[in-house]
Design a protein around this nucleic acid. Structure first.
Lengths: 232, 232
DNA sequence: GCTTAAACGGAAGATATCGTCCGCTTAAGT
DNA sequence: ACTTAAGCGGACGATATCTTCCGTTTAAGC
């Protein structure tokens, strides 16, 4: 359930300064060797443990718990992430990258197979449910301050989804008045398996299917009146 | 935005022991007078402040912050709620009562006006979005241990929604393969206004409309194949 | 195998938060 | 107006958690 995650963000840990193109000049000490293997492993382990722990105990889970779950000392956690917030940000970032990957794959598959656009959307949403546990978005009730890089990934997701929808509109399988933001909202739901809902996967798929059915241009038109505050 | 909340749960604070039917027998000291008015006010104010604070800062918001926001001392908070968890439970309880009220009203309106069942569902979901801010469900990442009374309200919600759906199936406006749990899942989404989604209300209504459209029995059938783990 | 710098672990100091306690205030009967 | 008990506030001792620091361990290059 955690296995295939690391590769998604491979390359971001090392290539931070545009390459080791240092002739050796003055004052500036740049990283000579890449990170040790055990260090890289530990970083991933911490991230995985944090994802699980946050899902289990919420965003306020103690760093010590995360460290213990990862099988490392607290010091190691702080070596990789300067502070709690940095760790949570990294978590969020990883989640968005997974979502981006799902959106991208859905778009590609769609382009290749020439199936209706709505199918690509459906596949994207399915993937989101599948990833479920790995998608930890500590934005809920926590530090909503997404860092720069994460915002970038987020935009990429939007762009990818926009493309997906447009393809669907073009081939006539999706109504024109749906936005990428709608899909993000919908997808965010799917990352939050409500603890008390039994049979989550099945139920989630049903919700997806109903939504997908509603995407058809032949379905009833959307209302135009605004949602009123409280018509008593 | 908080105004009409108190009455929903009026009566629960006082009538806890089945009525003041004490002839005066032995040892047992029962509450003689109801709660003072200022006390009741403060309880509500604390609850409101807690709802806002939790939404703003997350479930880990300090009790001191809640107290300050409510304009009372910490002591007062602890007078009304024995511990942090009790306060969060009360919050959850209140949320569910709001949802229950929305579901009940939707069902009644539907019975009276004789409109299609799917409209009642749509109205219910709309109400959920309207309440938005008041619906704080600290179940996410927090103490998921719902207390007995809250679970009862939750069941009532399910029952009401089940009735709503059945009516829709009967009048032919809703497909038969949707469950009350589906609506709960969907509704839960709507209580979580993602901070970064602009124009939330409009977007949420669009999502609702698409879902409602998908509820029509004429829409494409739901898939029967399970969501596969990862078809590479 | 040896050297070295990176990485590790966990104790400990600094903070933050909890929940209690108790003297003062106030609503509500008489 | 007076009495009384409920209610209030916020300082305070007890924890819980964060983050730093540094002696020890280990991967990687020679």
């Amino acid at each position: 359930m955690i296995g295939g995650v690391a590769e998604v963000e491979s390359g971001e840990t090392a290539g931070e300064d545009g390459g080791p193109s240092n002739g050796g000049p003055p004052g500036e000490k740049v990283r000579q060797r890449g990170p040790r293997r055990d260090a890289a492993d530990n970083r991933d382990r911490v991230l995985d443990a944090a994802a699980t722990a946050v899902r289990r105990e919420g965003i306020a889970v103690p760093m010590a718990t995360i460290a213990a779950d990862a099988g490392v000392g607290v010091g190691t956690v702080y070596r990789h992430f300067p502070c709690r917030e940095a760790l949570l940000n990294a978590l969020t970032h990883r989640s968005f990258e997974l979502v981006l990957a799902a959106a991208t794959r859905a778009a590609e598959a769609n382009a290749d197979a020439g199936e209706p656009g709505v199918e690509a959307v459906r596949r994207f949403l399915d993937r989101t449910v599948e990833h479920g546990g790995d998608l930890v978005m500590p934005m809920r009730g926590g530090p909503p301050a997404l860092d720069e890089r994460t915002v970038a990934v987020q935009s990429a997701v939007h762009a990818q989804l926009r493309a997906l929808l447009q393809a669907g509109v073009r081939d006539g399988s999706i109504r024109a008045d749906v936005t990428a933001g709608d899909l993000v909202i919908f997808g965010a739901l799917l990352t939050e398996r409500l603890p008390h809902v039994a049979d989550w996967n099945t139920a989630a798929r049903r919700v997806i299917d109903v939504y997908a059915a509603g995407l058809a241009p032949t379905a009833p038109p959307l209302r135009s009146t605004p949602v009123v505050p409280s018509p008593s």
